[in-house]
């Protein structure tokens, strides 16, 4: 405990005090800036880096500082329910509806879509390559039961996890049952980590396209895309403002500006163009024009049946001071 002379000890204390004082001043300055906008979002959107680009462009146009809190869809929604965020950016329609119904959120807009993929090891021991998603899951369960392969689930209540459970159910398989079986593992982690676990264990998993392509390109995984076709794999991203009548502290003005930016031509171009250079294909497809002008009837009908509530992306009772957001309806 000893060893320093008093003078040296005092010097060290003074040094630390000076650093700390500088810290206090810095913190005081940084927290007195204008009101920021807190957006809780999903890891699959954040980890690709698209939101940093969106945030920078939004700052350019509106001078509103955006803070992204990256979590699974389940957690992102809980943050908003506690009043800790102003906007959510998520991809689980079945979780979004209760969020609107409880009065926590208003003014939902569908902003983008892409497709989930089932990935697995090169040798594809379950023989699922090119099958329909539901057929593939049935085969995976068979092979898993026979002890040939492993399946890694996100297991974190995220949008991807929600999708995975819905897919098992659609294939007529009880998730509660297979959860107890030894071939079905839960990573309890984000998409990137889950892909790494699957790669390490040479297992199958459900992934979003963006994270998969990024990890593949960076040489972090060698998993193959095995099942990529089928409307069951549709992945729809929505933005929802936190309802100011339920959460008076929420930054509703900022939230509406952010939603308007996302559905604007600039915002949609930014989302649709992101990743083109690096991956030679877009990571996300803009949805606003598709929904307005019905440029792809088959896809529109998929989105309608998967992500619409009562035939609308946001039924009128869940709208609040929405301005011209839905005027095309």
């Amino acid at each position: 405990m000893q060893g320093l002379t008093s003078v040296e000890g005092v010097l060290v204390l003074v040094l630390i005090a000076v650093i700390a004082m500088a810290g206090v001043i810095y913190l005081a300055l940084s927290s007195s800036t204008t009101r920021r906008l807190v957006i809780s979002t999903t890891t699959s959107l954040y980890d690709t880096g698209v939101l940093d680009a969106v945030g920078a462009k939004f700052w350019q146009q509106q001078k509103i500082d955006v803070s992204f809190i990256s979590a699974g869809t389940g957690l992102a929604i809980q943050y908003a329910q506690r009043g800790d965020s102003d906007v959510i950016l998520v991809h689980a329609p079945s979780k979004e509806l209760p969020f609107l119904q409880n009065g926590d959120g208003v003014n939902r807009k569908i902003i983008a879509y892409n497709f989930f993929i089932i990935v697995g090891p090169m040798d594809d021991a379950a023989k699922v390559r090119g099958l329909s998603p539901l057929e593939a899951l049935k085969k995976i369960k068979q092979a898993g039961g026979a002890g040939v392969i492993l399946w890694i689930s996100r297991g974190d209540d995220s949008g991807t996890h929600t999708k995975e459970k819905a897919l098992w159910k659609a294939a007529g398989i009880d998730v509660a049952m297979i959860r107890g079986e030894s071939w079905y593992l839960e990573a309890g982690a984000g998409m990137g980590k889950t892909l790494q676990v699957a790669d390490e264990k040479r297992a199958y998993t459900l992934s979003d396209t963006g994270t998969y392509l990024k990890y593949l390109k960076d040489g972090l995984i060698s998993l193959q895309e095995l099942v990529t076709q089928g409307k069951e794999l549709l992945n729809v991203y929505s933005v929802i403002a936190v309802n100011p009548s339920q959460h008076p502290d929420a930054n509703f003005q900022g939230a509406m500006k952010f939603i308007q930016f996302l559905v604007s031509q600039d915002g949609q171009d930014l989302i649709g163009g992101y990743g083109q250079e690096d991956y030679e294909q877009p990571l996300f497809y803009p949805a606003v024009r598709l929904l307005q002008e019905n440029t792809n009837p088959e896809l529109l009908s998929w989105i309608r049946s998967y992500a619409y509530f009562d035939g609308s992306e946001c039924p009128p009772q869940y709208r609040y001071q929405e301005g011209a957001l839905y005027e095309e309806d």
Binding site: M1, G3, L4, T5, E8, V10, V12, L13, I16
Partner: peptide, 10 residues
Amino acid sequence: STGGVALAVT
């Protein structure tokens, strides 16, 4: 006890 206190702070 300055020396010991400095250690505590570090």
